[in-house]
C-alpha cells in the first residue's frame, strides 16, 4: 500500500515538475495577492483582527486557485481511468491528499512571511501563530482534496469548487482567524483547545473522505 502511495505521489510531483504551469500559477497568485493587499493598505495601521482576516482571505483564495488541480488534471488529460486500474481508490486518495498538504503548506509558507514582512506585523506569540497557520492549512488541504475530486467530475469546475468549498470551510476559517488575531495581539495566553479543534476537524474530514472516496472515484 505504502509503495503504491509513494509511486502515485512521485508521479504527481514529476508531472508537476515537468509542467510547472499550475504550481507556478498558484504561487504567483498567492504572491501577487499578498503584494496587492499590502500595496492597497499602503502602510495603514490595521487592528490584529483585520490583519488576521486579510491573511486568511489570501490563504483561502490561494487554495481555491490550486488545490482542485490535482484531480482536474487527471480528468482533463484522461488519465483517471488508467489511475483507477493501477491503484485502489484509498491509495489514490492518500497520495493526492499528501500532495495537496505539501503544496498548500508551501503556499502558506510563502504567503505568511510575505504578509508579515510587507504589512510589518510581528506576532506576539510566534510559535502559536505558526501552529495556527500549519493547522489551518492542514484543515483546508483535507477539505479541498475530497471536494476537488468531486468537482473534477462536474461541469463549470472552477466556480463550482469555490461554491461547494466555502460552506464546509467556514468553521476552519472562523477559528483560524480568531487564533491568528489572538497570536498577533498577545495578551491572554493562547488557547490550545481551539488548535485541537482544527486538528480534530482535519482528522474527521480525512477519515470520512478516506471511507467515501471510492464512491466518487469509481462509478456506482
Amino acid at each position: 500500500m505504502q509503495s503504491r502511495i509513494f509511486k502515485n505521489l512521485r508521479k504527481d510531483f514529476l508531472i508537476e515538475f515537468r509542467n510547472r504551469s499550475a504550481v507556478n500559477i498558484s504561487f504567483a497568485f498567492a504572491g501577487i495577492t499578498t503584494l496587492s493587499v499590502s500595496l492597497a493598505c499602503g502602510g495603514a495601521t490595521l487592528s490584529p483582527q483585520i490583519h488576521s482576516v486579510l491573511l486568511w482571505i489570501i490563504i483561502f483564495f490561494s487554495g481555491m486557485s490550486g488545490l482542485s488541480h490535482i484531480f482536474i488534471r487527471e480528468e482533463e488529460e484522461r488519465t483517471s481511468l488508467f489511475l483507477a486500474l493501477h491503484s485502489d481508490p484509498e491509495n489514490i486518495y492518500l497520495s493526492k491528499l499528501v500532495f495537496n498538504i505539501i503544496l498548500f503548506s508551501c503556499i502558506t509558507a510563502l504567503v505568511t512571511p510575505l504578509y508579515l514582512f510587507f504589512m510589518q506585523v510581528v506576532p506576539a506569540y510566534t510559535v502559536y501563530f505558526i501552529l495556527t497557520a500549519a493547522s489551518g492549512s492542514l484543515a483546508i488541504s483535507s477539505i479541498t482534496t475530497i471536494l476537488g475530486a468531486m468537482v473534477a467530475k462536474a461541469e463549470s469546475r472552477s466556480s463550482l469548487f469555490t461554491v461547494i468549498s466555502f460552506p464546509v470551510m467556514i468553521p476552519v476559517l472562523w477559528i483560524s482567524i480568531k487564533l491568528t488575531s489572538d497570536s498577533i495581539e498577545g495578551g491572554a495566553p493562547p488557547e490550545l483547545r481551539s488548535l485541537l479543534f482544527l486538528l480534530a476537524f482535519s482528522g474527521v474530514i480525512i477519515s470520512v473522505s478516506y471511507l467515501a472516496f471510492k464512491f466518487i472515484w469509481t462509478e456506482q
Binding site: 477539505i143 475530497i146 471536494l147 468531486m150 467530475k153 462536474a154 461547494i164 460552506p167 464546509v168 468553521p171 476537524f201 474527521v204 474530514i205 470520512v208 473522505s209 467515501a212 472516496f213 464512491f215 466518487i216 469509481t218 462509478e219 456506482q220
Partner: peptide
C-alpha cells in the same frame, strides 16, 4: 454524469459532519 447520486451523496455526508 452517471455517478451523480454517489458524488452528491458524499458531499452531503461531508457537509453533515461539519
Amino acid at each position: 454524469h452517471p455517478n451523480r447520486g454517489g458524488i452528491s451523496s458524499v458531499y452531503l455526508i461531508i457537509a453533515m459532519i461539519t
